[in-house]
Simulated assay, not measured.
Amino acid sequence: MGKRGVPASRRRRGSRGARRRGSARRPLGRIVLGGAALGVLALGGGAAVAHWTGGEPAAASRPSAAAPETPGTSARRSPQAPSPQASGKASPPPSPSPSASAEKEPDPPATVPHEGPGTFTTADASGAKVGTGTLRRYRVQVEDGIGISAADAAREIEQILAHPRGWAAHGRGAFQLVSENADFVIRIATPKTADKLCLAQGLNTRGEYNCETTEGVVVNLKRWLQGSPTFSGTPAEYRHLIINHEVGHEIGIRTHMTCPGPGKPAPVMMQQIKGLRGCVSNAWPYDEDGRYITGPIVP
């Protein structure tokens, strides 16, 4: 999960299938991470927008004036989505207990490479649309030299977003894996590279957290491979939480939640890596009966 940010409205990403200036038009294959690969989203009111789910903002993000937008980056964001109703919609079919990938998950590596070259490979993969509502096309990029196949990661993320307890299954939007012309990007990066991508927008991820930026989602390789010490499931199950939490921000849920009560499932929009506060760890937005798992809003 990323780091806790100051909620703020964003400029709308645009109509269905709109291209992002930075991520949608970048050529396929390897990209090079610049010193400020992700620009800060500048709104008309002069406030910078970015989101994270743990720790504190970097000192550079504290002034009220927005940093100038980095040339070539996208400032379009998803439309603000209405808060889902706790009652939920028609119940989807029960989901499998852990996912098949979770059952076959090997032991997590004892160590994770702290840094990589800062270049990325885009998954040469595409898939069918899942879900209804606003279509958001996404592509997946993996930092080079970290031992993870971009295509395999893309397929795993595709399965997460198509899960019967996920956003797409409950009318919160439609998603489609693409290799170009994407609305947002999901990057898996070493801790140092993830920090650099997030810090470009004033987000201090401290080598531990994920973040959501104006271009999309940055996943810390450490969390992807090792999960979280506060999460009771496998790293593969924790990957569901990473994607569901950060994509929750991507579809317009700007606030965080906290535990609704001892023994209850933690909301997916809770910063579970920072402690469960009596809740049970949970990786999905909805329960098996189709009810949205919610909790008090964090101010």
Rank of each mutant, 00 (worst) to 15 (best):
N282T: 03
A154W: 09
G248H: 08
G171P: 13
Y209R: 10
P108E: 14
S87Y: 01
D287C: 15
R277H: 05
Y292M: 05
P93C: 05
P262H: 12
L161A: 02
P285I: 09
L221A: 07
P68V: 12
R10E: 04
I293K: 10
P79S: 14
G35D: 06
R62S: 03
P164A: 00
K3M: 04
T190F: 07
L225A: 09
P96A: 14
R30C: 09
G207T: 07
E69L: 11
R187Y: 05
W284F: 15
N244Q: 05
G118C: 10
A100P: 09
R62H: 11
G55H: 08
A151F: 00
Q271W: 02
V112D: 07
T70I: 02
G233K: 13
L199Q: 15
D195C: 03
R21A: 12
S179F: 12
V40F: 02
E288Q: 00
G131S: 15
I157T: 00
V268W: 07
E143W: 03
G72Q: 11
V112Y: 14
H114R: 10
I273V: 11
V142Y: 06
T234Y: 08
P229R: 06
G131Y: 10
E215G: 09
G46A: 04
H249M: 08
L43R: 03
P262K: 07
D124M: 10
R137V: 01
L241Y: 15
S179M: 11
Q176C: 09
G145V: 02
R16H: 01
A37W: 08
G55T: 01
A37I: 00
L177G: 02
A154I: 13
Q80R: 14
P296V: 00
I186F: 15
P267T: 01
F231Y: 14
P299K: 07
G202K: 11
G55Q: 06
P285M: 08
L199C: 03
V32H: 15
R137A: 11
S232K: 13
L28W: 05
G14W: 13
Q141T: 04
E156I: 02
I160L: 11
D124E: 03
V130I: 12
S281V: 05
R16V: 12
R172C: 05
P7F: 08
Q159G: 10
